[in-house]
Each structure stands twice: as structure tokens, then as C-alpha cells.
Amino acid sequence: MNSYKRPWYKLKRTWIILFLLTFIGLFVSTLPPELSRNITYLTKAYSEPEICEGALAIAKTDTTVLKLLGNLEPLGSLDMLNGSVGYSQNGDSVGITINVRGDKEINNIRSKMDVLAEKINNKWEYISINIRIKKPEALKQTIPILKK
């Protein structure tokens, strides 16, 4: 007499697969349609780090930034994920917002750098660079670094 019983997951394998496929389909359908575009922009911005690094180098020389934030720290690898990136359709101009930090000890300071740049003759030229201090309220302001 054969008393072998198949495990429950083998008996319900078809239903489990159907449930998982339905769940994945529902999850994908709730994602925003511009997600793939945003991922493409982030990837492109990561492949062109000179945009942010050049803007940061210019911002490091501003006396107001040095007074309020201190020396700006180098950008981390995940800083761009916390910001936003937008390219023009041709890919010849970009707008980037990225978190920046200074070495001054100020509690809960939050600041962002906004960069607008345009590619001219295969070189990025900056249209504007601003640093926005969002918190604390006493320091809240926008510091124009470069404006063309």
C-alpha cells in the first residue's frame, strides 16, 4: 500500500503561480508611467558626474555658502537618488536638484543645490546654480551662486 502524500504546495502549485502573477501584474499597473523615464534620467546623470561635481566646485567658492554651511562635502553616491533629474528631449540641457551638506555643526540643516546646465560643443555650461537652505526656519533662504 502506497501511503505517499504530495506536499500541499505541489497540490496548489497552479493557484499559487496564478496568484503571484496577478499580484505582480497589479503591482506593475500601479507604478507611475514616468518611472522608466526617471530611471533613464538618473542613469544618464550618474554617467555624467562632471555636471554635479563642477557645480559643487563653483558653489564651494561662494562666501555666503562658506559662512552658512562651511566647506561643502563631496557628493555621495546616493545623493542623486534623493534629488531629482530632468533632461530635455534632445538631452542637451539638464536640471538637477541634489542634497548638499557643509561641515559646520548646525542641527537638522537641510539644503539642496539646484543646477541648470546646457551642453554646448560637448561641454556642460551652467545656466544657473542655486543653493536652497530649507531648514531650520531661521536660515531658510536661496543663495544664488551663478546666473547667466
Rank of each mutant, 00 (worst) to 15 (best):
S29R: 09
S29W: 14
T30P: 05
L31Y: 03
P33M: 03
P33F: 04
E34F: 14
S36G: 03
R37K: 15
N38L: 14
I39F: 14
L42V: 04
K44W: 00
A45D: 04
A45K: 03
Y46I: 00
Y46E: 00
E48Y: 10
E48A: 15
E50G: 00
E50W: 02
I51S: 10
C52P: 04
G54N: 15
G54Y: 09
G54E: 05
A55W: 00
L56Y: 09
L56E: 08
I58G: 03
A59F: 13
A59E: 10
K60Y: 02
K60R: 10
T61Y: 09
T63Q: 06
T63F: 10
T64P: 01
T64A: 15
T64S: 08
V65S: 01
L66G: 07
L66H: 09
L66W: 08
K67D: 15
K67V: 11
K67W: 12
L69A: 07
G70A: 01
G70H: 01
N71T: 12
N71C: 03
N71Y: 06
N71W: 03
E73G: 04
L75Q: 09
S77V: 13
L78T: 08
N82W: 10
S84E: 14
S84P: 08
V85D: 07
G86T: 11
G91I: 06
G91T: 09
G91L: 05
G91M: 08
D92V: 10
D92S: 14
V94P: 03
V94K: 07
G95V: 01
I96P: 09
I96H: 11
T97N: 05
V100M: 11
V100L: 11
R101P: 00
R101M: 04
G102R: 02
G102K: 00
D103E: 06
D103A: 04
K104E: 08
E105Q: 12
E105K: 15
I106N: 09
N108D: 15
N108P: 04
N108V: 05
I109N: 04
I109W: 02
R110K: 04
S111W: 00
S111K: 01
K112L: 06
K112Q: 07
M113H: 12
M113P: 11
M113N: 12
V115M: 11
V115K: 12
L116T: 14
K119E: 14
K119Q: 14
I120H: 05
N121Y: 11
N121F: 13
